[in-house]
Computed example of a mutant assay.
Amino acid sequence: MTDPTGAKPMTIMIASDTYPPHINGAAQFGYRLSQGMRKRGHDVHVVTFRDSVGPSISGPEDGAMIHRLRSHSVPTHEYWRICLPWEIKKDIVRIFDQVRPDVVHVQCHYMVGKAVVEEAGRRGIRTVATNHFMPENLDPFLPFPKWFKKIVARNSWRDMGKVFRRAAAVTTPTPLAAKAMHKHAFLRKVLPVSNGIDAAAYELRPDEEVAMPENPMVLFVGRLAEEKHVDVLIEAVSKTPPEFKLHVEVVGGGEVRNALEERTAELGMSDRVMFRGAISDEELRLAYIRSTIFCMPGTAELQSLVTLEAMSASKPVVLADAMALPHLVDEGVNGYLFPPGDSDALAKKLTTILSLSDEDRKTMGKASREMVNKHSIDETLSTFESLYRGDAAADKVE
């Protein structure tokens, strides 16, 4: 595939503090963005962390050139790594000298993103900045009291404003997230641009048959972190009528997995909850197809790509009434919202869907699939191409 506008290909530098093998929405978006732009004929370079000990290295990964910077483990997190500014500065200068990008697209305002924005500014290179951050995302890294976390969150918003004000265009996945950036980071112009999704990738293929589980299954996909509140889902399922024999499939790893397994055992749910850890993209696709309902109990979702993926697989959804999740629910049509942290309310919503006929559940799933159409990945890529080139229409923001 090439750029549908027929314009000259660009050399694009994408910078992010999180990227595969990290498993989270921002990392997945960065990967899909790099792959999408590469398939459109652009020369794509990704600047991110190295996921092991050693000096900065560069090399091709899935067709894109990945520049992985020297990094260090974080004692408060099982897999996260950070890049220290004074260690990566020279490497970033070197990468700019080698790549000579036409445009830079940063996915964060932390160490890597900030350093790349500063270097791009010194060289007069157009910069686009996208925010995937919420203060709650910091909780796993900060084993401190809430009052201290509030101070850190406030300072992080302030730093975001300082870094992103240097960009020619600033985006975030949803209007609600843009509003939060206006309020907390004091950024006047923020363009809501969906992370985008290839909805067809999660549908049954022609003549494909997938073995369905014996019992109904509610699926959760995501990092097992405090703000995801997977414990609320497990408790809710334990409160659903026993005759439904509802099971839970949990996909993803993270710092609270052991605590979740302990809570599952306490509830006598070990035979009904399956922790699968990290799985391949194809295994994940099949998990969506096999599921009966998708649930996202998290309270810090700027868009929730995994919810969009489940909706693409034509599944009813039950989501926490928090952050951007309400935008993905047409109450009673494709699913339901529940008050965050309320396992009783979640149990009732799950029971409502389980009580429907197979045909009515399929109708809810079809409604989910139809709602995803406005989140086309092709439209997202075209929007960013326009922002990269500085097209006047793309720069118009609320």
Rank of each mutant, 00 (worst) to 15 (best):
T2N: 13
D3L: 07
G6V: 03
M10F: 04
I14N: 03
Y19L: 00
G25Y: 01
G30T: 06
R32D: 15
G36H: 08
D43M: 10
T48C: 01
F49K: 14
S52T: 13
G59V: 13
L69Q: 01
L69T: 05
L69M: 08
H77I: 01
Y79W: 11
P85F: 01
E87R: 13
K89N: 13
D91R: 07
R94E: 14
Q98Y: 10
R100T: 13
R100L: 13
H109Q: 12
M111K: 12
V112A: 05
A115E: 13
V116Q: 05
E118K: 15
R122N: 13
I125V: 15
R126C: 07
R126W: 11
T130W: 07
E136T: 06
E136F: 02
P140M: 09
P140R: 05
F141Y: 14
F144Y: 15
F148R: 03
K149Y: 08
K149N: 05
D159T: 09
R165Y: 06
A169R: 09
T172S: 15
T174I: 04
P175Q: 08
K183P: 02
F186A: 11
F186L: 11
R188K: 12
A200H: 13
E203I: 04
L204K: 04
E209W: 11
M212G: 04
L219F: 05
F220D: 01
R223K: 08
K228F: 00
L233R: 00
I234C: 00
V237Y: 00
P242T: 14
L246F: 08
G253A: 08
E255M: 10
R257H: 03
N258G: 12
L260F: 07
T264L: 07
E266I: 07
F275C: 01
F294I: 02
F294M: 09
M296Y: 03
P297H: 04
G298N: 09
L319T: 05
A320E: 06
L325S: 06
P326R: 07
V333I: 12
V333M: 12
N334M: 05
G335D: 05
L337C: 09
D342I: 03
S343M: 02
S343R: 03
D344L: 12
L350P: 02
T352F: 10
T352N: 09
I353K: 00
R361G: 07
T363S: 15
V372W: 03
N373K: 15
N373S: 15
K374E: 15
K374Y: 05
H375G: 05
T380W: 06
L381H: 06
L381V: 10
S382D: 14
T383Q: 14
E385I: 08
R389I: 08
D391R: 13
D395L: 15
V397C: 14
E398M: 12
